[in-house]
C-alpha cells in the first residue's frame, strides 16, 4: 500500500513554510539562500508526488529543470554574496544601508 498523496502535500507545505519564514525573518544572507532552496525543494516534493499520483512523468521532468535552475541561481547568488562580502566584510542584511529598503 502506498502513502497517500495528501501526506506528501502536507510535508511539502511544511517545508515550503519553513523556507518562507526563513527568508522573512533571518538576517544572514547564506541562511536566506538556504531558505529559498527549501522553498524550491518543497516544490520538487510536490512535483514528484503528483507525478506518481497521476502516473504522469511530466512532473518528474519538471523537477530536473527546477534542480538545474536552482543550481544556476545558487551559483550566481553565491558569487554576488562574495562580492558583497568584499565591500562590507559582512553578510548580514542589516548592514546594507547604502540604499534605503
Amino acid at each position: 500500500m502506498s502513502v497517500p498523496v495528501e501526506f506528501y502535500m502536507v510535508l511539502s507545505g511544511l517545508v515550503f513554510i519553513i523556507g518562507l519564514v526563513g527568508v522573512l525573518v533571518r538576517k544572514n544572507l547564506i541562511i536566506i539562500l538556504l531558505s529559498i532552496e527549501l522553498m524550491l525543494n518543497a516544490t520538487n516534493i510536490n512535483f514528484v508526488a503528483f507525478s506518481s499520483h497521476f502516473g504522469n512523468l511530466s512532473g518528474q521532468v519538471f523537477v530536473f529543470f527546477a534542480l538545474t535552475v536552482a543550481a544556476a541561481e545558487v551559483a550566481v547568488g553565491l558569487a554576488i554574496i562574495i562580492a558583497l562580502y568584499r565591500h562590507h566584510a559582512s553578510i548580514n542584511v542589516d548592514d546594507f544601508r547604502l540604499l534605503k529598503w
Binding site: 511539502s12 522553498m39 516544490t43 510536490n46 512535483f47 508526488a49 503528483f50 512532473g59 519538471f62
Partner: peptide, 9 residues
C-alpha cells in the same frame, strides 16, 4: 514555482 506545482497537482 510552488504555485505551478499546486496547479500541476
Amino acid at each position: 514555482l510552488y504555485g505551478i506545482s499546486l496547479i500541476f497537482g
